[in-house]
Design a protein around this nucleic acid. Sequence first.
DNA 1: TGGCCCACCTGAAGCGCTTGAGGTCAAGCG
DNA 2: CGCTTGACCTCAAGCGCTTCAGGTGGGCCA
Lengths: 149, 149
Amino acid sequence: MTTTDGGRASVSIQDMSKISGLSEATLRYYEKIGLIGPVPRDESSGHRRYGGHAVEMIEALGCLRATGMSVQDMRDYLRFLDGREDSAALMRELFERNVSRIQEEIERMHVRRRYLALKAELWAARERGDADGENRIVPEIAAAREGLR
Amino acid sequence: MTTTDGGRASVSIQDMSKISGLSEATLRYYEKIGLIGPVPRDESSGHRRYGGHAVEMIEALGCLRATGMSVQDMRDYLRFLDGREDSAALMRELFERNVSRIQEEIERMHVRRRYLALKAELWAARERGDADGENRIVPEIAAAREGLR
DNA sequence: TGGCCCACCTGAAGCGCTTGAGGTCAAGCG
DNA sequence: CGCTTGACCTCAAGCGCTTCAGGTGGGCCA
């Protein structure tokens, strides 16, 4: 998992990927756009070696990314963490905003699920030649469509 | 909304966008990738004019897109609609697959919401200098993190 | 010592759109 | 009549990644 390198633990990109849940490509991408890094390299091979501090930070980023948080919010998160400003309130707001975002997404998902489930039922009715069933479902689909924005 | 053009109704891209909920850019994009179209043009201006058949089709696509259905599944949907194959079963399967997809997304969303809500609580506790509260929340966050994949 | 494989590297292209720049056509107004 | 306005056009770039192509360093085996 980790190799010792002059007394300090260092982690390869593959292991960093396993630890954080971010793909190797994403780790390179985040470095390229300046969200993390620059990551120190192994002298001879030029391979990335993530040090203790970076490992924890990127592990946390992996969780935030897994919630669908935007890159901009992750940037703010890192800024609040590291800055000596009184950032507890800003952090709370950042996370509350993201809870609301998820909440809204969940609600939209329910509407979508209902619409798609009705469509599946419609075609199931057609499949078994059930014209009555079809006629019952059609107006329900029309109603469900309204909620889809 | 619609203009009459030699007895046939035709719809501008702006109105098509309002009807379908797809942006004008998306309508052009879908045409470019061959999902819809080619759309006939007004002789003199070169502007797109969507005809009756296309309007209904694109309206339906708008609903499917609003559920997060993939472009490939929308292609299949159109193929099943139009083909003379016995497509009711294929349609049912397509929609059932998409219901499952949404169902899984909803479940993941719940986990994410919990994680983010705990993070918000953590910073709220820090904000009011509540060390006990903090200590109560930290292990809950660790537990919630497990579900984030 | 040569050969092989694996982990890693970079750069470019693709996905599904969105955004923006720059230009055309038709209608309305002073 | 020229001018503005608005709806539309095309082409190119950007977003947040993923995927792919082509190349290098290091360890292990014969």
